[in-house]
Amino acid sequence: MGLLNKQDNPFESSNIVITGADTLLNWARLSSLWMMGFGLACCAIEMMAASASHYDIGRFGVIPRPSPRQSDIMLISGTVTLKMATRTKLLYEQMPDPKYIISMGSCSNCGGPYWEHGYHVLKGVDRVIPVDVYVPGCPPRPEALLEGLIKVQEKVRKQSLAKTAV
């Protein structure tokens, strides 16, 4: 770390950055959004492809975490069935605030191709948990998922933790 290096004292070479607390906090938060990845259906394969070598979601600071207690964003990747919906809600409630939800794919947006005869499919995950970003597609391409992620980052950038604290 250049700033903390004793050989070139940061205060001598005037390397001081002045910024707002919100900007700094938001910058820190948006560049390390840990993702709770749990594969639900077909979209999970595209999520895996996005986190593998070709698309490399890691460059956005996204690290897949298996536990809801360590994650900032939840990726609903695929069809949420009625049997799974209660579990999804439970996982959402276990996540610490502030938390963001990306709904990936038509199924979790609105029921997708299963909207009419799917007696066991929840028609949209937003019926049980609030959603921040909807990524359309069946399945969305990994690029579309990255776009959705950037949308979340934009949302984080505009937020103010200081204001809500007061």
């Binding site: 639900l40 259906a41 077909c42 695929g78 069809t79 069935t81 049997k83 799974m84 579990r87 191709p113 299963y114 009419e116 005869h117 799917g118 007696y119 066991h120 499919v121």
Partner: peptide
Amino acid sequence: GYLHRCFEKHSEAMTYPQVIPYVDR
């Protein structure tokens, strides 16, 4: 059953070519 998406019910409601996208999934 956590991903039971009712394929067999859908195939009864769709025409023969319409079933193919559900087969994909």
